[in-house]
Nucleic acid binder design. Structure first.
Length: 474
DNA sequence: TGAAATGTTGGGGCG
DNA sequence: ACGCCCCAACATTTC
């Protein structure tokens, strides 16, 4: 008996409950549907990453004796056709929680034997509710409950040893060609490598610290330094796994499992706390997926609707300067250039540029949200939307509106030597650390680098006024 | 997962 | 020796 494994955002073989359920049920035919309705929602950069990931997944499937069937068309039409061709009796798919995915799957389930299996998250959004049955909207209690719901250990399913062959008569289109991404190779092996490197491996740099450190284990593994390093945009202190998590090349459960292993192996309280901090970041990701599930209106506007009445300035020229990395604030411009050139930006840098767009330029956070989605390799509706609403102070458990970043102080704190700016804004490479964060305040040659497009002190007050206005009239 | 404004304290210079 | 002022350093409040 044949069954279809409909692959969407679960491009992996390890810890795949859906795949295992399908394998128990029958001979699995792995299928990816190129859905024309999704064309507008995925940027060229992310699209290319996806094609590369599918190519690599196909290669992995071949080592197991299987192969990927790639077809174009609306999912319902393609799946109907494939059920006929294969004689399959069921379609297994990992449940996805975006508004589009839920609507799509609901429709398809009416017509076809679709079986959705939870696997993208650790807890289903309906399984992590408050005692009164309503969803959490504040992170800390959510996180507490989320942890309390964890079983003692998450059993991580290995990738299947072998998979049944897909009959030759089932034809596949060619997966579109893609340029390999040198910074983020789109394979499951790479995702696993990154996870292990971050959570278990001794780093070379840390070796040097060992001799004079009482906390040698702490120094040796990145996850144990995370609490100290995670906000430093000039260091490689994060796991850099977001693109893999977004496409399910790496499972969230697997990441959580590794975090918990690291927590239990920590040799001292500081290390344990550091690994806990990283786990908390994974829970933030889950939190925003839950929020989008329970409050789908956040896709289009503020979680707190009164903030949709803010009178934005929305100056198109200033928006262009922000996108191009020519605001005159070096830390902002460095991050915006990194975004455009690589599709990945450190989380702290994302917060700095988001705060600058919203609270210094007073531009609608949705403009920034869209630009991020167009450029980020890890662009994820739930996480990106949650992050922007947090920064704008309009969402669940958001930063209070009056918590306004000072881009110069952020720069000094989190890029103290100016290395990050130096890397992405080469025209300022001749400046040293004391001049580089706010070069216009110094008597230095800017070499074509722009003057600040807005005065922070003025902008701060303007934003406080604009937010206060909608708050008092709420 | 801020920063600015305002308040408090205490050491040192100095008449 | 004493009081006064200055102001850095730290703490608290406010946005």
């Amino acid at each position: 008996m044949k069954v279809i494994w409909w692959i969407r955002r679960d491009l992996r073989l390890r810890d795949h409950a859906t795949l295992h359920a399908a394998l128990r049920h029958g001979d699995v035919v792995p299928v990816f549907v190129r859905d024309p309705n999704l064309g507008g929602a995925i940027s060229a950069r992310r699209q290319s990453f996806l094609w590369e990931a599918l190519t690599n997944l196909n290669a992995d499937l071949r080592t197991k004796g299987s192969r990927l069937i790639f077809r174009s068309g609306t999912p319902e039409a393609v799946l109907t056709q494939l059920l006929r061709e294969t004689g399959a009796t069921a379609i297994f798919a990992e449940e996805d929680y975006t508004p589009y995915a839920r609507r799509r799957d609901e429709q398809i389930a009416k017509a076809l034997p679709l079986k959705l299996v939870q696997g993208q998250l650790v807890h289903h959004p309906m399984a992590a509710l408050k005692a009164d049955g309503t969803p959490y909207t504040v992170f800390t209690p959510f996180s507490k409950n989320w942890r309390a719901l964890l079983p003692p250990t998450l059993d991580i399913l290995p990738a299947p040893e072998r998979m049944p062959a897909v009959p030759a008569k089932i034809k596949s289109e060619d997966i579109p060609a893609s340029e390999p991404n040198p910074l983020f190779p789109a394979s499951e092996a790479e995702a696993q490598k990154r996870l292990r490197r971050f959570t278990t491996e001794t780093t070379e740099n840390a070796e040097n610290l060992k001799e004079n450190s009482v906390n040698s284990m702490r120094s040796a593994v990145k996850i144990y330094q995370y609490a100290d390093n995670r906000d430093r945009v000039d260091l490689d202190g994060t796991a850099s796994i977001s693109p893999y998590l977004h496409f399910g090349i790496l499972g969230l459960r697997d990441a959580v499992h590794n975090a918990r292993q690291a927590i239990s192996h920590a040799r001292d309280a500081e290390s344990r706390k550091s690994a806990e901090t990283w786990l908390n970041e994974l829970i933030w990701r889950a939190f925003y997926i839950h929020i989008l599930f329970h409050f789908p209106h956040v896709r289009d506007g503020s979680f707190r609707p009164e903030y949709d009445r803010i009178e934005w300035v929305n100056d198109p020229d200033e928006f262009s300067a922000w996108k191009a990395g020519r605001t005159g604030y070096p830390i902002v411009d460095a991050a915006m250039r990194q975004l455009r050139e690589t599709g990945w930006v450190h989380n702290r840098a994302r917060m700095i540029v988001a705060s600058f767009l919203v609270k210094d330029l007073l531009i609608d956070w949705r403009w920034g949200e869209r630009w991020f989605m167009e450029n980020l390799l890890d662009g994820d509706l739930a996480a990106n939307n949650g992050g922007w609403q947090w920064t704008a102070g309009v969402g669940t458990d958001a930063a209070p509106y009056f918590r306004i970043f000072n881009p110069i102080l952020q720069s000094k704190k989190f890029d103290p030597n100016g290395d990050y700016i130096w890397r992405w804004v080469p025209e300022l490479a001749h400046l040293d650390a004391k001049d580089i964060h706010a070069p216009w305040e110094r008597k230095v040659n800017l070499r074509g680098y722009p003057q600040p497009i807005v005065d922070h002190k003025f902008a701060r007050q303007r934003t406080l006024d604009a937010y206060k206005k909608v708050k008092s009239s709420a």
